[in-house]
Design a protein around this nucleic acid. Structure first.
Length: 1071
RNA sequence: GGGCCUGUAGCUCAGUCGGUUAGAGCACUGUGCUGAUAACGCAGGGGUCCGUGGUUCGAGUCCACGCAGGCCCA
């Protein structure tokens, strides 16, 4: 056999004259094989044809969630792409036309930050100084930094997606579609400018959307914890005690909030000062030695005025620095008195607006104190915390200070701690559509199911308006122009380049729809000012969420495609997209079209390192997909992804785990395939028919085996198809592995003799099975399935498609599924296993025949099944007769087992009574009554229980002289006494095994004929006289000689071993 | 603090409608079989089915409350 490890079928170097099928190495390098398949696909243009040849078929719509190509693809991308790939492939084989349009996400902060790093810029001032045009040009180029990695990885793992006509979010066409969408939303009154406190990254100079915010929480963040004394007006040395972890917000303080129903204490502390604090928290907060003075409800404190801690900037008209009531005040932590800074908290702003409090903007857009905050002007707020604390301390207004550990949000890109900051920005009014978002979501098929009502559903129920605006450079400009006339609020939204050209009266045909170019377009406003674009850009999530529309440049072109592809049948991403792409797709589609953007979605769990921890660069436990592909191949990697566990669960990943599925599944499949080719070619060489044109007589036993395999195969096709239809990936893959295991270790093993004999039925059954399996596997592991298909089908059958991926999905024939045979065979396997265990227990080798096996099954039906398969059982267990325990008479002991299900349902608490009563009775008598069809009445306390024969199982346990094994109610026993005839037969088989081993060791071809020389002895001569034909035919022996002296034998291989009581020597040479 | 998910052998996972003794693979040890197989069979050790309580004749399975881990949100 060739040592080439790859390039079998794929490197179609022509089938030899002698062989119908290309030779298949027993041991294969999957990576090399896969590379050869990649070439084949390229040469035959298979991917393109998989789309072209299905044109005219029903459409199956897949949306690609666009990755960003400015980061290296990792193993989690392989996970997502493996799941993305399989359904388009499956549907294509089902006859659907599946357009696999790719996409790239190209805008946004990640790109900008990368460029900033390259240029050594820090912050927006430096970018503006550098020049926005040049900066954005750099962004445009940087986007493709790792494009070739992405393309190579995509191809290598066989994710079939059209990258050549991928949508690109930064292209003018794409941006123009976004403008059209925004105009639609504008016309519906859904775009508005609002004053809101937002999580804000001072480093990046932009607010973060809630889905961005969710990316950057860090546990265990240590912040200052300060208890501040607010001096009450009109009370001597009396203070309201408030707690904060952000001292920098104190100069923005406008009020203190209490809970109206909360109980408060007025206490005198050891220094003599009077303090107000929530009663429940007093003990935690206050230093020991305080003395309660009074107790009151929070309502009693409302309206109390205090001296502001600080006061900077111009005077304000509004009243401030007094106690208000707010329902969010709790006694979970702090002091029960909450410091309110409307500029720096969402709750604060809301309650501030309700009370008409002033908003003290003490912090600028870079997170530094403004000039009017004189002591700390220009200082970054987090850096100012200690200064403010010590200032308070110096002024006697600090009660105590320490640190506090909590979960705090950081910028998901630059890791700067976020601040909450009131900002004027553009919003999309999604909250108005909350009910529709929820209702439409309920029509989507989520896998796993719980995401619909769980994480995603909850998220929708708590919907807040989408903060769309970004104060950055590299993204889609919000196409709203505003009059700059003093006091003017005149705005227009522009929905296309043509509209902009008309308004501005300029030819804009070459305009780049990015900053700074769009900002240069102005026109006179009707109110005398000039129309200038608002400064903000669009959240990049809006880009990807709009891809159903924008990927077609709709409505400016491709109206037909849009109509066809406007709603996805299937999308797939990881769970982290719940608030990302899943949400933005759903939101845009709901607001614009009032329909879901996708019908089916697989939501993947996260990928973890082998030890279950998170993969991260800092831990150094990141797995490089290229390494895994090089070690084990893409098929093995994909197969692991599909079968490792439910898709929605987090899964561990490592090369070792992939190696395991390779060994366990791929090697088994490959070996079966290789086995088939060897014997099919052998048959071909002998009579030129190969896969079974020469119909030979098939025994009933063989026919049964073939029928069983056909039945199992049809069952498999049925189940796998159903699983694909249900988007149940685990159920679409795991059963194939189980089937292949049965195919290899049951069907092939049992029928080995038939293959050796060139049995046409066996060869064609196996070939048909392998071909069907390769089709079932094609969507999951596209390489090995192609390899098998290429060798066994393509080019051999005149009408066969060129590739398994151009072939039709297998159909199943319900009439060929034989449930009884299925059950019979499963039982036979169980019994075989137990029989071997029984032999094991007394060290009886399987090749030593024994007289009888006695089986106890669990029902008469099963007994009948055993009888139907008795030939098989006799062969497998190497016994002469099969007995059933209930006919075995005195060979067995009896026990009566009351069945819990029947009796439990009938009598409930009577069951244990019956059970204990039965245990006290004579089993043989009891069994006899049930066997005779009688019912037995058991007397319980105050109630009699009638037990019918069908309520019990009479168990028969073989007695002495038998070796026994038992499991799950089944019992198998074999006789252990050996007659001389049985012993002799065992010796014959032993001798054959030794000769076969010697043949193998002598490197003989499997069809070589031999001459045997055996040492002369009484045992061997009687063995030969009894079993000569058997020995000769098994070992392809033409001639046997017995001789006493082996010294004369030359040119032959010998082996010496003990057989029975004797030492035997065997020599062989090629005939 | 809230939501969602997960918890079964050292590891990866099954476990149907609540019902007989909770299974498989990997790993380990022993052993056997084999002219396809670097494969396979068999045996052994290895289990607080996360815990507690409840429902039930009977709970890995249903319910409640916890615990731990993960993810998300505040």
């Amino acid at each position: 056999m060739t040592q080439t490890t790859a390039g079998t079928a794929a490197s179609t170097n022509g089938r030899t004259q002698r062989n119908r099928f290309n030779e298949v190495p027993a041991s294969v390098s999957y990576p090399d094989m896969e590379e050869a398949i990649l070439k084949l696909w390229k040469n035959k243009n298979v991917f393109q044809r998989s789309m072209q040849e299905r044109e005219g078929g029903p459409e199956y719509v897949f949306f690609e969630g666009p990755p960003t190509a400015n980061g290296r693809p990792g193993i989690h991308h392989v996970l997502a792409r493996a799941f993305k790939d399989m359904f388009p492939r499956y549907k294509t084989m089902q006859g659907y036309h599946v357009l696999r349009k790719g996409g790239w996400d190209t805008h946004g902060l990640p790109v900008e930050l990368e460029v900033e790093k390259q240029l050594g810029l820090t912050g927006k001032d430096q970018i503006e100084e550098y020049g926005v045009a040049k900066f954005n040009q750099m962004c445009k180029e940087s986007v493709w930094e790792y494009l070739s990695d992405w393309e190579a990885l995509t191809e290598r793992m066989a994710f079939w997606v059209s990258l050549e006509d991928a949508y690109v979010t930064m292209n003018n066409e794409y941006v123009q579609s976004l403008w059209w969408i925004l105009k639609q939303l504008w016309d519906k009154g859904l775009l508005f400018e609002g004053y809101k406190v937002v999580p804000y990254c001072p480093r990046c100079g932009t607010p973060l959307s809630s889905h961005e915010l969710s990316l950057g929480y860090q546990e265990g963040t240590v912040d200052p914890s300060v208890y501040v004394k607010f001096a009450v007006k009109g009370e001597d040395d009396a203070y309201l005690l408030a707690w904060t972890t952000t001292p920098w917000t104190l100069p923005g303080n406008a009020a203190l909030a209490i809970g109206e129903e909360v109980d408060y204490l007025k206490v005198r502390d050891s220094s003599g000062a009077t303090l107000y604090v929530a009663k429940e928290l007093a003990e935690n907060v206050l230093e020991p030695g305080y003395e309660p003075l009074a107790e009151m409800k929070g309502a009693a404190l409302v309206g109390k005025e205090y001296h502001p801690l600080f006061r900077f900037g111009p005077p304000v008209d509004e009243r401030y620095a007094y106690v208000i009531a707010a329902d969010f005040v709790s006694t979970a932590d702090g002091t029960g008195i909450v410091h309110i800074a409307p500029a720096f908290g969402a709750d604060d702003l809301a309650v501030g607006q309700a009370h008409n409090l002033p908003v003290f903007h003490t912090v600028d857009a870079s997170g530094c104190f403004k000039p009017e905050v004189t002591p700390w002007a220009g200082l970054f707020v987090k850096d100012a915390d200690p200064h403010i604390t010590s200032d308070l301390k110096d002024r006697g207004l600090l009660y105590k200070a320490g640190t506090y550990e909590h979960t705090y949000p950081f910028c998901w890109r630059c890791e700067t701690p976020l601040i909450y900051w009131a900002k004027e920005t553009w919003y999309l009014r999604t909250s108005e559509f909350k009910d529709r978002l929820v209702a439409l979501n309920n029509t989507i098929n989520w896998v796993p199911d719980h995401v619909r009502g769980g994480r995603f559903g909850r998220w929708l129920e708590n919907n807040v308006d989408w903060a769309l605006g970004r104060d950055r450079y590299w993204a889609t400009p919000i196409p709203i122009w505003k009059s700059d006339a003093p006091g003017s609020d005149y705005k227009e939204c522009v929905g296309s380049v043509a509209e902009l050209a008309e308004k501005s009266g300029r030819d804009l045909s070459g305009l780049d729809l990015h900053r700074p170019y769009v900002d240069d377009i102005t026109w006179p406003a009707p109110d005398g000012g000039t129309m200038r674009r608002v400064s903000e850009l669009c959240d990049v999530w809006f880009d990807s969420g709009s891809m159903p529309v924008a990927q077609w440049h709709y409505p400016f072109s491709n109206q037909d495609q849009w109509e066809t592809y406007k709603q996805a049948d299937y999308i797939c991403e990881a769970i982290d997209q719940t608030r990302g792409w899943f949400y933005t797709l759903h939101a845009v589609s709901t607001l614009l079209f009032d329909r879901p953007a996708f019908k089916n979605v697989i939501c993947l769990g996260l990928i973890l390192a082998e030890d279950g921890s998170k993969m991260s660069k800092s831990k150094g436990n990141v797995v490089d997909p290229w390494q895994v592909f090089a070690d084990h191949g893409a098929d093995a990697t994909r197969w692991y992804m599909y079968t490792a566990g439910p898709p929605g669960n987090a899964r561990r990943f490592s090369g070792n785990l992939v190696a395991e599925v390779k060994r366990r599944f791929l090697n088994t499949l490959w070996n079966t395939y290789s086995f088939f080719v060897v014997y099919a070619n052998l048959q071909e060489a002998q009579d030129g028919t190969g896969d079974g044109a020469n119909a030979t007589e098939v025994s009933a036993e063989a026919a049964l085996q073939d029928r069983w395999l056909q039945s199992e195969l049809n069952r498999l096709v049925r189940d796998v198809t159903a699983a694909y239809e249900a988007y149940d990936v685990t159920a679409a893959t795991r059963p194939i592995a189980d089937f292949v295991d049965e195919l290899s270790n049951w069907y092939v093993r049992l029928n080995r003799r038939r293959f050796w004999d060139g049995d046409a039925a066996a060869l064609s059954t196996l070939r048909n099975t392998l071909v069907t399996v390769s089709k079932l596997l094609a969507p999951a592991i596209p390489f090995i399935s192609e390899e098998i298909y290429q060798n066994l089908v393509a080019g051999l059958e005149p009408d066969a498609p060129d590739s398994v991926h151009l072939a039709d999905w297998p159909q199943f024939d319900e009439s060929r599924i034989d449930d009884r045979l299925h059950a019979d065979m499963a039982l036979a396997q169980k019994v075989t296993t137990l029989g071997r265990a029984a032999r094991e227990s007394v060290a009886l080798k399987v090749r030593q025949p024994v007289q009888k096996v006695v089986v106890r099954a669990r029902s008469q039906d099963e007994n009948a099944g055993l009888e139907r398969l008795s030939d098989l059982l006799l062969t497998e267990l190497n016994v002469k007769e099969l007995g059933l325990a209930d006919q075995a008479g005195d060979l067995v002991d009896l026990t009566v087992f009351p069945l819990p299900k029947q009796l439990g349902q009938k009598y409930g608490r009577g069951y244990p009574v019956i059970r204990s009563k039965f245990a006290e009775m004579d089993q043989r008598q009891l069994a006899a009554r049930f066997d005779a069809g009688e019912s037995v009445t058991v007397e319980g306390e105050g109630q009699d229980y009638v037990v019918e024969p069908e309520d019990v199982e009479v168990r028969r346990t073989p007695r002495a002289g038998l070796a026994v094994a038992e499991d799950g109610g089944y019992l198998v026993a074999v006789t252990t006494t050996l007659t001389p005839e049985l012993e002799m037969e065992g010796h014959a088989r032993e001798l054959v095994r030794r000769i076969q081993q010697l043949r193998k060791d002598s490197d003989l071809d499997i069809s070589d004929r031999i001459k045997l020389t055996l040492s002369d002895s009484p045992l061997l001569s009687s063995l030969l006289s009894a079993h000569r034909d058997y020995i000769e035919s098994e070992t392809l022996t033409l001639d046997v000689a017995l001789r006493s002296d082996f010294g004369e034998v030359s040119n032959s291989d010998t082996v010496t071993f003990s057989l029975g009581e004797e030492e035997i020597t065997v020599g062989l040479e090629k005939a």
